[in-house]
Every structure is written in structure tokens, then in C-alpha cells.
Amino acid sequence: MLLSETARREAFTTLFSQMSPRLYRTALGMLGNPHDASDALQEAGLKAYRYFDKLQQEEAGPAWLTRILINACYDQGRRRSRTTPIGLEVEQEEAGGLPAETDWELVQALQTLPEEQRTTVVLRFFQDLTVPQIAAVMNVPDGTVKSRLHAALSRMRGQLMQSRREGVQ
């Protein structure tokens, strides 16, 4: 899009502000803790603004921004994995810090999934995208999205069943 500096900034601000809650949810699902999710959201925002001129169609903005966020989450995950094994550091928030409503058990179960499966589940449920929309964001065929979703949800179902059984015993 060829825009003046001010128009460019305004267009980006509108898109980013509208998308930010969905993007943050996605980042939290992907990374498992609010601090990393917030960092990934900021990183994605700055990167998106830098390349905002490359966005051809305004309608493609949300998918484009989501793709940038996913890459930012992958980068964040890689940086983190150099020091901490992924999936072991989901923050259980203390009272007064972050809310009790967040289903941390589920977020933790997500962190044990392989990166691509986790992304698929997060896009499906945290961004409420359809299978074809996820396929477009991840640049894979619909069938791949379905098989990743099936594998991920089967695994999560197994884990949650097991943890429930352990909780009962």
C-alpha cells in the first residue's frame, strides 16, 4: 500500500489495535506465559509496521499479522528453549497477579504439543479460524491442517483424561 507516513501509521494503528487481543491470546496459547506472549506481541507489531508497505490488500491484514505473530512466537520459543525446555515453564499465576479464569491446565497441555500442531490448535480455538483460513495462514493444504488438528486433539484428550484420572486417585 502506498500511503503517506501519517496515513500509514494510522492504518497500521487501527489494524494492530483491533487485532491485538486475538494476537495476544494466540501468543499466550503458543508460548504458555503472559510475559513471553506480551514480548511476542510487541515484536510482531514492530516487525509488521516495518513491512506494512508490503501488505498488498487491506483485507489480508489480519492473516498477514497473524503469520508475523506466529513467526515471532517461534523465534521467542527458540530463544527460550536455549535456556529452558519448552513446555515446562508455564506460569501458574499467583493471586493478585493474573486471573484465575485462564485455564492453565489446558495451556500447559498445549505446550507439550509439537510446534505446528500447537499453532493449528491455537489458530482454530484461540483465533476461531476455520480449517481453510488456518491453511491459508500456515500456507499448507486443508488436509494437513485436519491431520495436525486430529493428532493434536487426540493427544490432548488423552492427556486431560489421564490427569483427571490421576486427580481422582
Binding site: G29, S38, L41, Q42, D103
Partner: peptide, 22 residues
């Protein structure tokens, strides 16, 4: 649970992150 989890996520850090970017 997956559908509910998204809705239950606290969005407290979002405004601060957006402000920093802007």
C-alpha cells in the same frame, strides 16, 4: 474447554504492549 479457554484469557498486558509498539 478449548473454546472457553480463549474467552477466559485475561487481556491485562495487551494495552501496555500495544502502547509500547505505537
Amino acid at each position: 474447554r478449548l473454546r472457553g479457554a480463549a474467552a477466559g484469557i485475561e487481556l491485562g498486558p495487551v494495552p501496555q504492549a500495544v502502547d509500547k509498539v505505537l
